[in-house]
Amino acid sequence: MSAWISQFFASYSNIIDLCLLNSLVGYGLFLALSANMFSLATGGFMALGAYCSVYCTMELGFPFAPAVFAGALLAALGAAAIGAPVLRLRGDYFMLATFAFTEVIRVIALNWDSVTGGAIGIFSIPRHTETWHLALAVAVVIYVAYTLRRSYFGRAIAAVKQDDVVAQSMGVNVFMHRLSLFIASGFICGAAGALAAHLNYFIGPGDFGLVRSVDALTYPILGGVNALAGPLIGAIFTTLLPEALRFSNQLREILMGALVVAIVLYLPGGAMSVFKLRWFGVRAGETKLAAATEQAQS
């Protein structure tokens, strides 16, 4: 039995690691989305975290934990720097500004040869990230998200999400709430970037572009933006899907796209809304209320 487990782990440990890593990124986005911030800055934050932590471990000889912390901190600083001006923008403009941030970071990484290695990237990065680091990080982030939702801060954020004008008129400082949440999101994505950099021996500017940002958005949206477990489910689903569909070769990409479209079409509240519907379904009286809330939120 134990032999079987160790073989399973040896064969699939990287998939487990990737699931956890993507979950971590998913929760970073989950925080941003909980105040209606459709951020495409994830790639940029991860790049900051990754390059900074690699610089710390390889050039400055830092131990792993402070290096990850430094990377996360730099990403949080980046979030504060762009969040301050950009969070006054709303909707599409915010999205465009965060997209521009990711592109700027990518182009800097491409051209700052002495630190980032340019297009060639950095290889032979020591492998420090263990599965338990990732699991611990995900557990901590879930706990933080859980307590946050129940706090005064969380209620204020929920109000901002519903209608920021009303929230503002009730005395919630919308800008500061959004900014602090955006910084927290940057911190988590930066930490994820640092962990990712020390997982697979190599980083390059191409790893942290727009694709990464869009992928990160799909985790919480597929899983469900309103459920605490949503990002976890979404990230695991999107990470396992390409592996599960490997048998189909060329058809794989079509199948993946079709499945994602199907989920968005038939479960607009994300995969976790299946459970919600069933729980509320038992208490018939609340079904309408649930549907109404759902509508108000979308």
């Binding site: 064969s11 699939y12 990737l18 290889f123 697979n200």
Partner: peptide, 30 residues
Amino acid sequence: RGQSVNIFQRLINQEKVAVILGPTLATSAF
């Protein structure tokens, strides 16, 4: 790259391959 690593792990531990040909891209190889 992530998928290349997944595949290498499975080929080595599960399929017990004697040799691996590839991968396509140098970044995957690293």
